[in-house]
């Protein structure tokens, strides 16, 4: 029996969003009477922080604090249409829709403030702290609170905006097959180091080193959280998880959670994350989709590391001890 060390590398380009009949999302923004901003979406936050990032995007665009923005993702029946939270599309597609809606709302807000200050709306700016002032003359100002009150109770105007982001469906060119099925691409590269026991087929992940290029990290702590979780999920896909049996018959498969192998806290590997930011031209403040991409490169990197360690190439996931042992036996027989 020998423990053999191996190292593998893999890189991925991962598209943001999808191309099934077009990829639209909508957003509506309106102010409350006291100058908070409500963003209405049908998009769902799965826990990755979509609501937080949408609040940041809306706040940045209108020129208010993030705490002044409320994100309402309450109801897909009544909210503006969204294709959904999948395909790493949330930040990019919905974020772009929120920017468009927030720009329109900001314009109305500045027009109302212009009326109050008796100036041109084009001469106004926000200070990011709840006030609107004349550019170059900060003493001539009105609070957003008072602006919203005035819009509601004096001018009868709705400080609101509509946002829509659509990536139209792309069809391949007949002659060349060329098409543009997605917008920007996120990238990742992983180096995996493993120990493989050539008697038991067991794989121990010694380290995972990942570099992710994700456009701009709109919320760096949440991006890091996503990437660390994704790296572990990649290991889990590569080595553990399956609903399909590798026993002789399907009847022997697991039927419930008890028999679905998901690694626990004792199975984690030392993980390193490096984030590269190359803002995407079409992304909201440069963001791409880091979501699913981050759980991909670990899988081929581990397959390569196992090949480097014991010389067998496993082309089916998960790479279980049984598959490694069968491949080793086949190699010896050959």
């Amino acid at each position: 029996m020998t423990i053999r060390r191996g190292r593998g590398v893999a890189a991925v380009n991962y598209p943001t969003g999808m191309n099934l009949g077009g990829d639209p999302s909508q957003a509506l923004v309106h102010s409350t009477p006291t100058g908070n901003f409500m963003v209405t979406l049908s998009s769902v936050d799965l826990g990755q922080g979509l609501k937080q990032v949408m609040a940041q995007i809306c706040a940045e665009t209108i020129g208010v604090k993030t705490e002044q923005v409320i994100i309402d993702t309450a109801d897909t029946d009544t909210g503006p249409h969204c294709m959904g939270t999948f395909a790493s599309r949330g930040t990019h597609r919905i974020g772009n829709a929120v920017i468009q809606a927030a720009r329109e709302a900001r314009q109305v807000m500045l027009e109302v403030a212009a009326e109050a200050l008796e100036v041109d709306a084009g001469d106004l700016d926000t200070d990011g702290d709840g006030n609107i002032h004349v550019k170059g003359a900060p003493q001539k100002s009105i609070s957003i609170f008072d602006t919203a009150l005035m819009a509601h109770f004096k001018l009868g105007r709705s400080i609101s905006g509509r946002g829509m982001f659509l990536v139209p469906r792309s069809y391949p060119e007949v002659e060349t097959g060329a098409m543009k099925p997605s917008t920007c691409y996120a990238h990742a590269c992983t180096v995996a180091e493993v120990d493989v026991d050539d008697e038991t087929g067991e794989v121990t992940v010694i380290s995972m080193k990942n570099v992710f290029e994700i456009g701009r990290a709109l919320n760096p702590k949440m991006v890091e959280q996503q990437l660390v979780g994704g790296s572990w999920m990649g290991i889990s896909h590569a080595l553990y998880e399956t609903t399909e049996p590798y026993y002789p018959k399907r009847d022997h498969a697991g039927t419930d959670f008890n028999e679905y192998l998901m690694p626990g806290p004792g199975d984690i590997a030392p993980t390193e994350i490096i984030v590269l930011e190359r803002p995407a031209e079409d992304g909201p403040y440069g963001a791409k989709g880091p979501g699913e991409m981050c759980a991909n490169p670990q899988i081929p990197a581990l397959a390569n590391a196992i090949f480097d360690a014991v010389g067998v190439r496993i082309d089916m996931m998960p790479i279980t001890p049984e598959r490694i042992l069968r491949a080793l036996r086949e190699k010896q027989a050959a």
Binding site: V228, G229, P265, G266
Partner: peptide
């Protein structure tokens, strides 16, 4: 000790390290 104490709990999202 922490890994041992949490070993009966599964997490799908975080990769456990932030929890530990």
């Amino acid at each position: 000790d922490v890994v041992e104490a949490l070993s009966g709990n599964v997490c799908r999202c975080t990769g456990y390290e932030p929890i530990i």
